[in-house]
Design a protein around this nucleic acid. Structure first.
Lengths: 330, 330
DNA sequence: GTGAAAGCGCTAACAG
DNA sequence: CTGTTAGCGCTTTCAC
């Protein structure tokens, strides 16, 4: 193991030329003669020189690194967004620093400040539930004021001036609900809704309600609410046992859908007795053709975020922010 | 938006004191008088000075950043490992750079070299399927020779000298299989095995076989092999329809287990007619109590990797590497 | 063609 | 107590 890394200086010393010559030779500058270039390149290879890109970044004032802050990586929606972000960044020579906020403002704030203290050229963020519920955006505002380019996705905030990428939650929920009604002939649909007052969950619920209103003549609905997922699951289980007229379930989020799948399986009814629709990115959903899954195109969301951010960084423009809506499909 | 960031130099200039005084004052050094400290602190706050920790890292020669390279983030096993790593790192003031290799040597190699060129203090890696199958470890060796501390997990290689964290795959498979036999009274168990020659999958299969041999008098087994997941799923589906004596399925990996759940659900047999056991970290499995899930304690694996790595970095020792085996439970 | 030198922002000897 | 100085490794004018 070589005790010391090869650097420009060590190459220069060994070859008795100057550091700047070495630097230029390695970057194949036209200023340097072919003979010198060859000498330098050979020496560099022989001593397996790897440029210290950290130093280079420091010098240039950019890091080619992007920060991603998400609430939870076990939710496949966020995992897929990460895949999209990582893919696009990697293709463009950028690195990715990831932080999981666990939906806590404190951790979010801490990591934002660490990253933005010179480590990243820009930030992609889905704010924590806590921040959204308390409308606490000061930590994000500070970031923007500081000049760090950011892109928000999924959970966004109108008062923040930056690029944003969202799903058309209302339309998606409307479409899926209508599909339950018109294609699966559902007559009694249950919706499971957490009472956590998240903006995009409310939109989904409104989409569902709009569809129900449109078809109110033929379809009935029952709303289950609870502030916790477990509570929702339990109530749904009881309801399914009691009321055999239920022939559809609409899940507003990942967990609701998974719970619905499990509970209806347990009932051991004849095939397709109960149709399930909802927002779900779990692998499981891909294998179960009977499900009506709202495909949020999470990976595409990630790619779009990354693209918006890199474009913003390259243009150095900080006006006219875009909000892109990623289409969904069933 | 302030056109220029506040720096030590700008503070020093404004207050007509030296840069080093400012630096010391901000780090609350005992060398500086209370009055000066107060002046500096107030000015810093007023101009919301944030230290450029990138520059500081550069100066100190360490980045407080760790690289994590995993094949796939959509596999919940790796996602959970990431959570463990991220949690431990964050608690210890470290950042995390993540790269997804997609099981390709090329991307793995590229990202390793980018990260190790000064951006990370150490690396945690689960090598790509491709590297393991081709026994290509040169890119890892180069890294080790270069002096970068690394920790391997899940897929390891004996010839590489570094810390390692693994699951006791053999024992886990043995225990789960025996549970199927003795507790669920299975008489005919199907095992779905991909023919991809991955070390830890082979260990799992050996564990299964050892249990079968021990109970060969009472239990029969059928082995399904295919090089692709889809093929396995199809063969399993056909077998389940044809042979009604099957009362147990053992899945060697995530997908196999998920497929088995789905297929047996479709059969609409009476409850618990077919018991399923296997390696699975999907959310779904948590909600289905009838499953026999091998809990690999993925988060703990992540925490252990991170801990081993930080300890190694701090001690600067590069001898006596440890291989830790994380216990599993059903 | 090649080299000298400045400097990115910060830290840490060493002087006063 | 405060200041001077010398870099970390690299890029980039500007001279020669």
């Amino acid at each position: 193991m070589p005790s010391k890394r090869t650097t420009l200086a060590s190459i220069a010393q060994a070859l008795e030329i100057s550091v700047s010559t070495v630097s230029k030779a390695l970057s194949d500058s036209s200023e340097i003669g072919a003979a010198t270039k060859k000498r330098v390149l050979e020496y560099a290879k022989a001593n397996n020189y790897t440029p210290n890109s950290f130093a280079s970044s420091f010098r240039k004032g950019t890091t080619s690194t992007i920060g991603l802050i998400i609430p939870n990586i076990l939710n496949p929606f966020y995992a897929k967004v990460l895949v999209g972000v990582e893919t696009y960044l990697d293709d463009n020579g950028y690195k990715l620093i990831t932080s999981i906020s666990n939906d806590l403002i404190e951790k979010e704030t801490k990591n934002i400040s660490v990253m933005s203290s010179g480590f990243v050229d820009g930030l992609i963020i889905c704010i924590s539930k806590e921040a959204e519920q308390k409308s606490e955006y000061q930590h994000i505002k500070t970031l923007i004021d500081n000049g760090t380019p950011i892109v928000m996705f999924d959970r966004i905030c109108d008062e923040l001036e930056c690029d944003k990428v969202i799903t058309d939650d209302f339309q998606a929920a409307f479409d899926a609900t209508e599909f339950l009604i018109t294609n699966r002939n559902c007559k009694h649909i249950v919706i499971t809704a957490k009472t956590n007052n998240l903006h995009h969950l409310n939109l989904r619920r409104k989409g569902f309600e709009a569809a129900m209103n449109k078809h109110s003549a033929t379809v009935k609905c029952t709303v289950i609410t609870d502030e916790r997922s477990k509570g929702l699951k339990q109530k749904l289980g009881e309801l399914l046992k009691e009321d055999s007229s239920i022939d559809g379930v609409f899940g507003l989020n990942e967990k609701s859908v998974l719970h619905a799948i499990l509970l209806t399986n347990k009932l051991q009814k004849e095939d397709n007795a109960i149709s399930i629709a909802g927002f779900c990115n779990d692998m499981q959903s891909k294998y179960d053709a009977s499900l009506i899954v709202i495909n949020q195109n999470a990976k595409e969301i990630g790619v779009t975020c990354a693209k918006l951010l890199l474009d913003r960084i390259k243009s150095k423009d900080n006006t006219s922010f875009h909000t892109k809506t990623i289409a969904v499909n069933l």
